[in-house]
Design a binder for these strands. Structure first.
Lengths: 240, 240
DNA sequence: CGGGCTTTTGAGTTAAATCAACAGCAGTGG
DNA sequence: CCACTGCTGTTGATTTAACTCAAAAGCCCG
């Protein structure tokens, strides 16, 4: 069985030190932390790991964006989360699991630090700050999932779409002549898979927004011209 | 500000040892583990803690059932989980949080062990098995929430209701002359709040099931006569 | 025995899915 | 270079699962 991802050069500890996640850790500590890790590269569309698969590695994303996808017995899929630069992913051991709970797909060319799962216990023990940070990350994801769960049950599609687009903007927004572009390929289908609807409904809403000058988009690109309008849509859904 | 729950007698360590959660821990270790804890009692309907409130305690449920409820800006609410006997709850520190992410309501008269939140760090440090177990519990809840999230998006109400009823059956099922009764008050509204629908829809489905002899129910009670039929409904939704 | 929950059932409405067709851009390979 | 093929996106028409609105009946407790 071949392992996904192309192995590459050694880790530059000073580069990691720049990420908030490694706050408070000296460069020498980071060097220690990453002693057993390696830098891996994934090409756009590549599956980094698959749901149910044995979790043999965990990762920290240095560059790119990862889509975390869940598939059900029916073959239907949802994107449960998009991982931005500077976050851990594939942290099955932090959940007390030995298999991955979902599939990770590189949305674009990605670079990550990969540790063998065997390193987990000793890392958690020797770097309590690291353990604490991953724990908090899990807590935030649980919180986030609960919120999306409620939204799915209680509010309508346009609101959920506005929220999803703003989240992507926060995670991968890049200035583009006044507007903010989501700097990764995002199709109508992708958006639909994030909020639990169909590409048709997303397309209709996006067309509507485009006609109102809120967004510009097409073929895998989404650019938000008036983010404030999206925030307004979200608020409106609260009390009509 | 008065603290919820009636404080009562000391903890009987040997009683805790019977729960799977305290597996592998000797009675003397449990006595140590619960040194700062106390037994608390909540009456049916009482709020044990509230969403956003400062998390000053965490709990282990000895008797009864807890409904964990989330409220949104709109005042709408959902039951995100029912805590059965033998589980930790209110474990904000395990999520790296200082406030409770949801409200906990005693579905019936409940008895729990309560620790002051200050004990968390030292417990986690001194009882790695305890830390690991709570970590796994968090992992399972994240998994569970993801599954419910997908179900909400992809499958219809009857399926979700069947799943919810079977879950309650597993958590609080009690033999009742051949059938299995959910041994806690569960109204149509409660079920609706668990699966993101309305009491009317739940009522219609339950009436249908009743007419087919699958369940018997009324005024806060649900008794499942043919659990196999519910399992069948769930499977059917896979490939129709 | 009256008032408040809980439940049932019917009728009408609706948000979004499904069904359907087509248009446009992007890369492939002849 | 241009035609072909495969994505991606748009838009219209129809259907439907579930919500909303409405009313009444049953049960439980004080």
């Amino acid at each position: 069985m071949t392992r996904n991802g192309k192995r590459s050069s050694r880790i530059d500890a000073s580069q990691l030190a720049r990420f908030a996640f490694f706050d408070d850790l000296s460069v020498s500590k980071i060097r220690d932390l990453t002693a057993n890790a390696s830098v891996v590269r994934f090409s756009a569309g590549e599956q980094i790991f698959r749901q149910y698969e044995d979790a043999d590695r965990f990762f920290f994303l240095l560059e790119g964006n990862i889509r975390v996808v869940r598939v059900n017995e029916n073959g239907e899929q949802m994107i449960i989360r998009t991982i931005p630069v500077g976050e851990m992913f594939g942290i099955a051991p932090a959940l007390g699991r030995t298999t991955y709970p979902a599939t990770a797909v590189a949305a674009v060319e990605c670079i990550a630090v990969a540790w063998p799962v065997e390193s987990w216990a000793s890392l958690a023990e020797r770097f309590p700050r690291f353990a604490k940070a991953t724990q908090s990350a899990v807590g935030e994801r649980l919180e986030e999932t609960h919120e999306k769960f409620m939204d799915l049950a209680k509010v309508q599609v346009e609101y959920r779409l506005a929220k999803a687009v703003l989240t992507l903007l926060r995670q991968a927004g890049k200035d583009d002549q006044g507007a903010i572009k989501i700097d990764m390929p995002v199709t109508r289908q992708n958006l639909a898979d994030m909020i639990g609807t169909t590409l048709h409904t997303v397309s209709r809403i996006m067309s509507d927004w485009q006609s109102k000058g809120i967004v510009k988009s097409g073929r895998g690109t989404v650019t938000v011209v008036l983010p404030a309008k999206l925030a307004e849509i979200i608020k409106r859904s609260g009390s009509p």
